[in-house]
Design a protein around this nucleic acid. Structure first.
Length: 707
DNA sequence: GACCATTTATTTTTT
DNA sequence: ATAAATGGTC
């Protein structure tokens, strides 16, 4: 099929066009929020194909989320007029999983290896702690896992870690933990998320022929959200591209909000160094938001010192002011949001899916849910527990994993007594010991154990094994969905669920039904025998990806999950010191700046209308605490703000002087401002008014009211 | 092995 | 406030 090349370039601005047409040297696109980043990526891929510069199978495009990958694929197909299965667009993790299915055997991995999610990891970590007699108060599994993850992201294996840190009190223990953790993973033929990346890099470094294969295959490499790449991802990409140098990375340092997870925005600078002939294109025109929103956001982000610098501008109309609402407490804040949302829906006919409410922490969603519910506003919450993390879904998937990968000890142990079969911890312990002693997989030890033991639970174990063998047959002969149904019904799982007096039983059953439907769908798309692909999908998908065409619902989510989305109307709630910026980020400048970027990301999601909400007091962990408006609000230019809401502190209320700094006051003439300094033991105050500047007052006589 | 009481720890989390 | 994890008892 022929595609009109000039048509592809038609609706692009000069910078976008350059990014699409550029050839010959590495390319870095610094794309501001709403500047058409995805557009550039999709058009570039389509352009590569349309001009004949590349075959679909020679292109690798990596993203961070399945959702982004899916969107990109669909948009490219739309441009090209048909679907290209040979075109590889996927997340880093899915790409790595695929590579390892193909070549993992070179590192001793079974083709059917399992992928552990966070819950599985934690379960395994706890096991390790128990075996190592680690005091979980002093060394919480989550902390140990964090260290391990860090090590993996820096490509440090257990031996190297041990050699480096054996003498260190904490890290010496981490080292032992790391070694055992990896050993258990290997024994289970399992990998965690970091392993997928780690082992691909290892594969590339130790087996040049594999690297060469992929270098020849993927002659064009494109990376989305480049600011979010970690050390190991960067090295992977670099290895793939350093020979042909046909690489295009797209990112925005101002939207780097995952550095606490290992993302290293320094890779942007590193790219400059490793590919000195790089062509840099800046996309600075924003097509998404009104001028007021852009002005407020740009002003905020300009307060960051560590940035590459970009000037975002827009030709859009000024639009409405950014609303700052001062509420008495979180309840009143939620009521305001609910009331406003209702008005937008009914009065102004904004469709619900064009409205979003963002917060810093999940804990904040509860009041909002209650108030929205009370106002009969349809809404959906994203994040929190993902579909595949739900207990009942994980249980059922564990059955599938156990038969697909006999070595998967974690899965076997998970389901051995679910539903209850009278096989308890004692039995599991004994079988485990046996498996260790004979160095055989857990499932094999189970079989052996029934042969050697009489009485006790051995008959029940026998029954369990028989059931699993049967399940394997069903899977082989009738496919995934049939096997899931078998595991659900014939095991007695569903009966137990129905009998339980749990109030969520109904919901759980619906989830299982949804899982079955997904299995059927997968079979239709990929074929009945494709268990591995199904399990991979299940492990690598988050519920954010499933966020179905969330039609007819207002979206609630954390600021982190808001990245990459856009809405007509956006509310950011909890704009208070300690929440945004979060208290844990006040210790150093880099984390404070990341909080500012987080706020920036949230603000730039809004197309037409932006609300920032502040509560004067808030219940945190059950205790009522006075709150101060976020410094980020005072960093916005007052000309594009509209301050509304109740006065939330009584007149004359004077907190002690340590907590006065940062407090908001209202001045008869200057309007709202924040206290920036307390002088002479509280007798004088320096107050900063947005757009006016700093003013000094005698506290007693100042015409100020606390907000 | 199951159940109830007490204790404990709560940032964000694309995969 | 809350939920999960632990520890004791039956």
């Amino acid at each position: 099929m022929r595609i009109d090349v000039s048509k592809l370039l038609e609706h692009l601005n000069p910078a976008q066009r350059e990014a699409v047409e550029h050839r010959g040297t590495p390319l870095m696109v610094l794309a501001g929020a709403g500047s058409g980043k995805t557009r550039v990526l999709t058009h570039r891929v389509a352009h590569l194909i349309a001009t004949g510069d590349a075959e679909p199978r020679n292109i690798l495009a990596v993203t961070f989320t399945n959702k982004a990958a899916k969107e990109m694929k669909e948009r490219i197909w739309a441009l090209l007029g048909n679907s290209h299965r040979e075109l590889w667009v996927g997340t880093f993790h899915a790409t790595c999983a695929r590579i390892l299915r193909g070549h993992g055997h070179l590192l001793g991995f079974d083709l059917n290896f399992s992928i552990l999610d966070e819950g599985d990891q934690l379960a395994l970590a706890k096991e390790c702690c128990r075996e190592l007699n680690l005091d979980t108060n002093r060394f919480p599994p989550s902390l140990l896992l964090r260290h391990v993850s860090n090590a993996k992201q820096n490509f440090i294996d257990p031996e190297e870690y041990m050699a480096q840190w054996a003498g260190d009190y904490l890290k010496g223990r981490v080292a032992r933990f790391y070694a055992l953790y990896q050993e258990k993973l290997k024994r289970s033929q399992a990998m965690d998320f970091d392993d997928l990346l780690f082992f691909v890099l290892k594969l590339f470094l130790e087996h040049r022929e594999v690297l060469d294969l992929y270098r020849r295959r993927w002659r064009h490499v494109l990376v989305d959200e480049f600011q979010d790449t970690n050390q190991i991802q960067y090295r992977m990409v670099k290895l793939l591209a350093e020979e042909h140098r046909q690489i295009c990375v797209v990112g925005d340092d101002d939207q780097s909000i995952y550095s606490w997870r290992g993302a290293d925005p320094g890779n942007i600078l590193r790219f400059d160094r490793d590919f000195p002939e790089v062509r840099i294109v800046r996309l600075e025109q924003n097509y998404r938001s009104t001028r007021n929103i852009i002005r407020a956001s740009s002003s905020l982000i300009s307060k960051n010192r560590m940035r590459k610098g970009k000037d975002l501008w827009t030709a859009n109309e000024p639009g409405e002011m950014v609303s700052v609402y001062l509420a008495k407490d979180e309840r009143e804040e939620a009521r305001f949001v609910a009331r406003e949302v209702r008005d937008l829906l009914l009065g102004q006919k904004v469709p619900p899916e064009e409205i979003a409410i963002f917060y810093r922490t999940h804990a904040q969603s509860r009041v909002l849910e209650e108030e929205l519910m009370a106002s009969k506003v349809p809404f959906a919450i994203y994040g929190g527990l993902g579909f595949y993390e739900r207990k009942e879904v994980k249980d059922l998937v564990a059955y599938l994993r156990a038969v697909a990968n006999e070595a998967d000890e974690l899965s076997w142990k998970r389901i051995i007594n679910v539903p209850k079969r009278g096989i308890g911890a004692k039995t599991v312990q004994m079988v485990e010991k046996m498996a260790r002693e004979k160095s055989i997989p857990f499932s094999q030890a189970l079989r052996l154990w029934t042969r050697e033991q009489r009485g006790g639970s051995s008959a029940r174990v026998q029954g369990f094994i028989q059931f699993m063998d049967q399940l394997r047959e069903v899977l082989r002969e009738q496919g995934i969905a049939a096997a899931l149904r078998e595991a659900m019904v014939r095991s007695g799982y569903l009966d137990e669920l129905r009998k339980s007096d749990e109030e969520k039983a109904q919901e759980r059953e619906e989830n299982l039904e949804a899982l079955l439907n997904m299995a059927v769908e997968h079979e239709l798309a990929e074929g009945k025998g494709e268990v591995q692909g199904f399990l991979e999908k299940v492990s690598l998908m988050s519920d954010l990806d499933m966020a179905d065409p969330n039609h007819g619902r207002v979206s609630l989510m954390t600021l982190h999950s808001a990245k990459g989305l856009e809405f007509q109307v956006v509310f950011i709630v909890g704009m208070e010191e300690g929440l945004l910026p979060h208290s844990s980020s006040l210790k150093d400048l880099p984390s404070l700046e990341e909080e500012r970027r987080l706020c920036y990301v949230g603000m730039t999601r809004a197309k037409r209308r932006l609300y920032l909400c502040v509560a004067g007091e808030r219940r945190i962990w059950g205790v009522l605490q006075p709150m101060t408006p976020s410094r980020f609000i005072s960093e916005l230019p007052s000309q594009c703000l509209e301050l509304t809401g109740q006065v939330s502190f009584e007149d004359g209320f004077c907190p002690d002087k340590d907590t006065m700094v940062g407090r908001w006051v209202r001045h008869e003439v200057f309007g709202a401002g924040t206290v920036v300094k307390v002088e002479a033991g509280g007798e004088r105050l320096v107050v900063h008014f947005p757009g006016v500047g700093a003013k000094r007052f005698v506290t007693r006589e100042a015409p100020l009211k606390w907000l």
